[in-house]
């Protein structure tokens, strides 16, 4: 698990006029699903439909990065209270940028915009969980200043027959 306090992020947000960060709307569903499928290789239309429709109240943020009316990436986060016994903090559930438009600071802009919203909502910590072998995204979060948090993630396989 990786965490960052709301100290100044390590990466400076890019100052591009061309990219606009805005909350996602229902009409962005097809693009979000397409980008996710392009990045992950798995189509999850039901998941994204549910995520955008349910909204998660005011504590969930789905932000998109738009350039010339085309979505280039998105980030999903939510403020959750007392998960794992911890006071309210921001969680990043997903961040994806089209492979063709990477290394232009879009991910940094998205992450920075989400952290700003978390800060305005009064939380002082942002966390995420990453697959150990996802070097690309793990390196991205590290470059933003995220460090290992105080948790250890554990799991076990469940025997179907109990």
């Amino acid at each position: 698990m990786t965490a960052i306090s709301t100290m100044k992020p390590l990466a400076e947000p890019r100052t591009s006029e061309a990219i606009r960060i805005r909350p996602a709307t229902g009409s962005d569903l097809a693009e979000l699903t397409r980008i996710d499928e392009e990045v992950s290789g798995v189509a999850k239309r039901k998941y994204w439909t549910h995520l955008l429709a349910s909204g998660g109240g005011r504590s969930r943020y789905v932000l998109v990065a738009e350039e010339q009316n085309q979505i280039q990436g998105f980030i999903v986060g939510e403020i959750r209270a007392w998960e794992f016994g911890e006071p309210p903090c921001g969680w990043v559930f997903a961040i994806e940028v089209r492979p063709k438009t990477r290394l232009q600071g879009i991910g940094t802009d998205l992450f920075s915009a989400l952290c700003d919203r978390f800060r305005r909502a009064g939380v002082t910590k942002v966390r995420t969980i990453m697959a150990r072998d996802n070097h690309l995204v793990l390196s991205f979060f590290r470059s933003q200043g995220m460090m290992a948090g105080p948790f250890i993630e554990l799991e076990m396989a469940l025997d179907r027959n109990g």
């Binding site: 390590l10 070097h135 793990l138 390196s139 470059s143």
Partner: peptide, 12 residues
């Protein structure tokens, strides 16, 4: 070790 670049270390 693999997730931390030299640039990230300088920022840190």
């Amino acid at each position: 070790f693999r997730s931390i670049s030299i640039s990230t270390m300088l920022k840190l």
